[in-house]
Design a binder for these strands. Structure first.
Length: 287
DNA sequence: ACCCAGGATCTAC
DNA sequence: GTAGATCATGGG
């Protein structure tokens, strides 16, 4: 399906479709990838550093071996999913979706690390993306493992669990969320979760479990379910999506939105949400 | 000084 | 079960 070749400092993958790194990394699902002046994205996922570039159907991954690609990056970038099918279906839903999909045509929903996603989206609540990224990078620099100059792993649950709230506060400046981070890390040590566990539950059950972690409510729970790749029909509703739902579709309350998106987007709700969120937040769709 | 950001929690009804 | 106040932080 894909042809993979090793190079002197990484690999190249042929036959790539529907993959624009800027769309993938800037659409709000992850916080630890940044554009390098050299034109590629660099970042760390699950303890592994990579440089990412896509040109004419060829994915270049520097710092990655063939083995690491099959063991990890293939799933991380969701390369087993054909986004052409998803985009065709969503584009035919209505004109807003057609616009949103055309704008974010290179989005792929990543399969991210559960604990990192949990903590990252706890930090995201009532916060803006630049600050979220700073909080997370501070956390990684102080309590993650050094990889190379300027790059660290995301801290383990046990590393964060043994910190005081004050230590977390001094490090992150995350305000009242420091208590949530501390409590969630401690609970995760006792009661962890993964993608497989939540994909074998109904979405309602999975949400209920996630909301037992302090700082996780309905919106953050859906972000976690979607961005660890457990539930493709999770539909996170933040201030931007709320605006879209109100102005484009005339649904207001959380219950109205839930009922509408389920019926309207079905099993593609998560993808629909992400195309809409990206297009609205970037000002391509006015709402 | 005020408003906002990928909201959640706590309290009161 | 649901409306309202409150929660730290930094940027506009």
């Amino acid at each position: 399906m894909y042809k993979v070749e090793e190079t002197i400092d990484g690999i190249i993958v042929h036959g790539i479709k529907d993959f624009v790194p800027e769309h993938v990394f800037e659409c709000g699902q992850c916080f630890r990838w940044n554009k390098h002046p050299g034109g590629y994205y660099q970042g760390v996922a699950s303890g592994k550093y990579a440089e990412v570039m896509v040109n004419d159907g060829v994915l270049t991954l520097k710092g990655v071996t063939k083995e690491e690609f099959y063991d990890f990056w293939f799933e991380y970038f969701d390369l087993g999913t054909d986004y052409s099918v998803i985009k065709d279906k969503l584009s035919s839903v209505d004109e807003y979706m057609e616009q949103a999909v055309s704008f974010g045509k290179g989005i792929r929903i990543l399969n991210q690390d559960p604990f990192e996603t949990l903590i990252s989206f706890i930090i995201s609540s009532n916060n803006n993306i630049p600050r979220i990224k700073k909080c997370i990078e501070n956390l990684c620099r102080d309590y993650g493992t050094y990889i190379k100059e300027g790059f660290y792993t995301f801290p383990s649950a046990s590393a964060l669990a043994e910190l005081s709230e004050e230590e977390i506060s001094i490090c992150t400046h995350a305000g009242y969320r420091c208590n949530y981070i501390s409590e969630a890390a401690k609970l995760f040590e006792i009661k962890s979760f993964d993608r497989n566990m939540f994909s074998n539950m109904t979405i309602e059950e999975a949400r209920k479990v996630l909301c037992t972690y302090k700082g996780v409510g309905p919106k953050v729970a859906d972000c976690i379910l979607l961005f660890i790749g457990a539930q493709n029909n999770a539909f996170p509703v933040d201030v931007w999506v709320r605006k879209v739902m109100s102005k484009l579709y005339g649904v207001e309350t959380p219950k109205q939105i839930e009922g509408f998106q389920r019926e309207y987007f079905r099993d593609l709700a998560g993808y629909a949400q992400q195309y809409l969120f990206y297009a609205v937040r970037e000002g391509f769709i006015k709402a």
